[in-house]
Design a protein around this nucleic acid. Structure first.
Length: 586
RNA sequence: GGCCCCGUAGCUCAGUUGGAUAGAGCACAGGAUUCCUAAUCCUGGGGUCGCAGGUUCAAAUCCUGCCGGGGUCACCA
């Protein structure tokens, strides 16, 4: 239960009742009435701005509305206080029993706690991420986008959205030709020829050596004595297939498995781009024009003003119209990507989310413009830009040179710190902020390391539950048994505070999903867990607060219910992050 | 030069889509362990929310203009 949503509905019901009694004008717009946690915990459990939002349209003073509304809210079940404060806030305090009921809810729901129907019925959502060139293994720069996309998708699913995850394979460009040629060199090498240095512009990576060898093993020297036109298609297809297999393997190692892989090449071959061109032309959204060279900076050496087919992106908010064809007559990447997004629209997706690297920032407006155009405004595209990740080692920046071939692959990173650490830490910043990723700090076991901090709390919960089962005979610590505990024994403010954080989980899920901000889950977990560690340590000063009370089975049972619930909510959050909660730390 | 992102405590960052007296961690100063893992916790100081206007009951948040950092700018993806 999203308790804030629950009380929002109550507040609106009371407003309508007031209108019916003539205490408020009828037909007021309640869409801006919000129910939120107060900024200050001392203000209560939930707060509403209703009186302030309604004051103007109702032609009344906020405090007058607030007084009446507060009286009505006080009469509700579970509300123990309703105070008017500040310019017209109404602060509610809720009964302990309400919080105990939330604990029951958690025990009953298990890790599904926080699942909601928030996004149900809003249409199909497509999340596209990674979408790297199949020209080599994924490297660290892809890690952030992969995690952000994957966790966003999991988050949206938890919030009830109908989600499909997708990888758009950029297998149609010139880079793929270069890749095939590079693989051909390795093929010659595998046949025993001396190929010398890999020429500039080719892919020098060693990962192509096994590809060349595989072809040599399979086909012998049959490609050695034919024209490039003959061998190129085979090498292109074979190598791309190999690279994609590796990409999928690397993603799987990160815990990422996408539902749909769309090939740019196949899209083009199927005539999808021609279709887009035709449709847009018919709607007069394409014309032949000449672009101006960029101002401020000297234009590229080979710049020449030439007429080309332009999409009227400016009609949809872009800064300039964008070219659809290259000088050799083939489609631009953009043209193909329009077809990609139209294809998604045709497959029924009205909400699309693309995860891009920050270097594609300049591409955002045109892609949004294109989606608006091809869907005639019926589909929405949100683009999340992931800023750069700077790899560090114990505080020192790690300089990576792609030319020297010593760039760090995604696989290297996973092997070094583990997939769960990569996944969690990538979400400890909002995606549009740059971040540092320190290989040493990532595996440190200290308060500074949020992954550890959260895992430690979960392990502590499990540890207490194990100890309780051992030390108190006859104590059943299964969730089912604990659901029968007398929770009214949980009365300490510190205990209730922890339960309140747990009860905020469903709202966190809804809000993070709506905002498309998966990092909020990591921050929530940090908050939750710090509440748990704090309560744990209160037992140092006050032994009466320890979870385990050897001489009081009833209290222990109630506290075990709380500990079990804590572990459950942590696990529920880690599930969204795709991180496995640990039973113990070693 | 255009566009996009960022600018919040000494440092690293949150800030619930416009709410009340702006919050954490690190660092600094002090304190807690006969105990379920002290791998943790508690207390304290520390701020012109880059600057200046504007919008309104209310702005770190929205608008405009500057300043600083990063990214990007036909035909690559």
């Amino acid at each position: 239960m999203n308790l804030f949503q629950h009380f929002q509905a109550e507040v609106i019901r009371q407003i309508e009742a007031m209108a019916a009694e003539g205490a408020l004008p009828g037909g007021l717009d309640t869409s801006r009435v919000g129910v939120e946690p107060p900024r200050e915990a001392s203000h209560g459990d939930v707060t509403t701005n209703a009186a302030m939002v309604l004051a103007k349209p109702a032609g009344m003073k906020p405090r007058d509305i607030a007084e009446t509304l507060a009286d009505r809210l006080l009469a509700l079940d579970d509300v123990t206080a309703a105070e008017v404060a500040g310019p017209g806030f109404i602060n509610l305090r809720l009964a302990d029993g309400f919080w105990h009921a939330r604990l029951m809810e958690i025990l009953a729901a298990g890790r599904a706690y926080g699942d909601s129907d928030f996004g149900a019925g809003t249409g199909k959502v497509n999340v596209e991420y990674v979408s790297a060139n199949p020209t080599g293994p994924l490297h660290v720069a892809h890690a952030r986008g992969a995690v952000v996309g994957d966790v966003l998708a999991r988050l949206l699913k938890k919030a009830g959205y109908d989600v499909t995850t997708e990888y758009y394979i950029n297998d149609a460009g010139a880079q793929v030709e270069v890749l095939a040629t590079s693989a051909y060199l390795r093929y010659c090498q595998a046949l025993g020829e001396d190929i010398g240095e890999i020429p500039d512009g080719m892919y020098p990576g060693e990962y192509l050596i096994p590809v060349g060898k595989a072809i040599a093993d399979a086909d012998g020297d049959k490609w050695r004595h034919v024209d490039e036109d003959t061998w190129l298609p085979h090498f292109r297809e074979f190598t791309v297939r190999e690279m994609m297999a590796q990409v999928r393997e690397d993603l799987a190692a990160l815990g990422v498995e996408q539902d749909v892989f769309t090939s740019e090449k196949e899209l083009v071959a199927a005539g999808a781009v021609d279709g887009v061109y035709k449709t847009l032309s018919e709607r007069d959204l394409i014309y032949t024009g000449v672009l101006e060279p960029p101002k401020g900076k000297p234009p590229p050496d080979d710049w020449e003003p030439r007429p080309q087919a332009l999409f009227r992106a400016t009609q949809f908010g872009d800064d300039v119209d964008r070219p659809l064809k290259k000088s050799d007559g083939s489609w631009t990447y953009f043209a193909n990507d329009i077809a990609n997004h139209l294809d998604k629209y045709k497959r029924g997706f009205t909400q699309m989310i693309d995860i891009f690297g920050a270097d594609h920032g300049g591409y955002v407006k045109r892609m949004k413009a294109a989606v608006t155009a091809v869907s005639e405004g019926k589909a929405e595209l949100d683009i999340k830009l992931c800023q750069m990740v700077h790899l560090m080692k114990d505080g020192e920046p790690m300089r990576m040179s792609k030319r020297a071939g010593n760039f760090v692959t995604l696989r290297d990173l996973i092997d070094e710190v583990g997939k769960d650490v990569v996944r969690f830490l990538m979400l400890t910043r909002k995606s549009d902020s740059q971040m540092e990723f320190d290989l040493v700090k990532a595996v440190e076991q200290s308060r500074e390391n949020p992954v550890f901090y959260v895992q430690y709390a979960h392990a502590r919960c499990r540890s207490v539950l194990r100890s309780a089962a051992e030390e108190i005979s006859g104590l059943d610590t299964s969730a089912e048994a604990l659901a029968g505990a007398d929770l009214s024994l949980l009365t300490d403010p510190a205990e209730l505070d922890l339960i309140k954080v747990m009860a905020a989980w469903p709202r966190t899920v809804d809000q993070a999903a709506e905002a498309h901000e998966p990092h909020r889950i990591a921050f929530y977990l940090n908050d939750l867990v710090s509440g748990f560690h704090a309560l744990w340590n209160k037992g140092n000063d006050d032994t009466g607060l320890r979870f385990l009370q050897a001489d009081n089975a009833d209290v222990t049972r109630a506290r075990m219910a709380m500990v079990q619930a804590t572990a459950t909510v942590i696990a529920s959050g880690l599930d969204v992050l795709g991180v496995v909660p640990v039973e113990e730390l070693r």
